Simulated assay, not measured.
Amino acid sequence: MSRFKLPTRDLTFRLDGGQGKAVLCVHGMTGAPGEMKFLAKRLHKRGFSVAAPLLAGHGVDEATLLRTRWTDWLGSVREAYHTLKRDHDEVAIAGICVGGALGLALAAEEPSVAGVAVYSMTYRYDGWNMKHWYSAIAPFAEPFAGLPLVRRMSFVEPYPFGLKDERLRDGMTAAQGAVIPGALDRVPLGAMAEMHRLAAHLDRVGPQIRQPVLILHAQDDDMSHPRNAYRLQETLGGSRVELHLLDDCYHMIHVDRQRDLVGDLTADFFGAPRAAVRPRVSEAANA
């Protein structure tokens, strides 16, 4: 039995594509598996089995999230990975933001992970739309994150919600926040502090990662500047790293205007089981 309050319904999903290759799709901090469905369907179309787990403490409320640490989130990814690996010859991991960082953390301890795709890596919220008090004080609040008052402080993700696609972000505005079942529309500082601790862990274990890593990041990311992607690339100096900057999306690259390109670049990088139309080279800028 989980020591955390559980969602009232199962938010996870799985798409079976055979017993060969599979991809574990990991959502971001305060997110939920539903945000990975565009990516999952694209990868499934390319021949992969796909599973999307729910990270520990997510899918309920802020109080439940704040009872977890990044190591609990990693435990969710580890458990889902081993479940998927039992039925497949090869399993890779693709994740957005914290989800991608967790995929790398697991790759550092599990040599059998076939590869990792990291979308919109975030060491710090330093994008062009994050020039608010919370992005300025968060790194300095981290030493005090154990204090209940500080941990519970939170901020609402600002418009345009990481989306360049007007139709998608207008839907977010109409819904007054998160529209993905189980996702939260506020980010507690306590959870952000855990994100920073996870990033510090990656700085330590990154040089040990030998699996191939794909880094995708938006040139105009509103939440995390491309410097986050370059920092990760430098940290992973010992592994095979491929980095692409996308030119028509914001932070949520796996659901925004270039989501199909994200899916196809990922499928190609993981060695898609069957052929599909490759994206035009002009749609992505190799860094």
Rank of each mutant, 00 (worst) to 15 (best):
M1T: 11
R3K: 13
F4D: 03
F4K: 01
P7F: 15
D10F: 05
T12R: 15
D16S: 11
G18A: 09
Q19V: 03
G20A: 10
A22C: 08
V23S: 07
V23I: 15
L24I: 07
L24D: 03
C25Q: 01
H27M: 06
T30M: 11
A32C: 13
A40F: 02
L43P: 06
S49I: 04
A51V: 04
A51L: 05
G57C: 02
G59Y: 12
V60Y: 06
T64Q: 04
T68I: 05
R69W: 05
T71N: 12
T71H: 08
D72G: 10
D72N: 14
D72R: 10
Y81V: 13
T83K: 12
K85M: 12
D87C: 03
H88Q: 10
E90Y: 09
E90S: 15
I93T: 05
A94V: 14
C97D: 11
A101H: 12
L102T: 12
L104E: 12
L104Y: 11
A108P: 13
E109Y: 01
E109S: 15
P111C: 10
A117C: 15
V118T: 13
Y119W: 14
Y119L: 15
R124F: 10
D126K: 02
N129F: 08
A136C: 00
A138T: 13
A138I: 00
P139N: 05
A141F: 07
G146E: 01
L147A: 01
L147H: 01
P148S: 08
R151A: 15
R152L: 01
R152F: 02
R152E: 13
V156R: 15
F161A: 03
G162C: 05
E166N: 11
R167W: 06
R169T: 03
D170P: 00
A174M: 02
G177S: 04
V179H: 01
G182L: 14
G182V: 11
G182Y: 07
L184Q: 11
D185R: 02
D185I: 00
D185H: 07
V187Q: 11
P188T: 04
G190E: 00
M192A: 06
M192Q: 01
A193P: 10
H196W: 01
R197M: 02
V205F: 02
V205G: 03
P207V: 08
I209H: 03
P212T: 06
I215G: 02
L216A: 03
H225E: 14
P226C: 08
P226L: 09
P226V: 02
P226M: 08
R231F: 14
Q233R: 15
Q233G: 15
Q233H: 09
E234P: 04
T235W: 10
L236Q: 10
G238S: 12
S239C: 04
L243H: 06
L245W: 13
L246Q: 02
D247F: 00
D247M: 08
C249S: 15
Y250I: 04
H251N: 15
M252K: 07
V255R: 05
V255C: 14
V255Q: 08
D256Y: 05
Q258F: 02
Q258T: 07
R259F: 14
V262P: 12
G263L: 14
G263R: 11
F269N: 09
F270Y: 11
G271Q: 01
A272R: 11
P273R: 12
P273M: 12
R274Q: 14
V277Y: 00
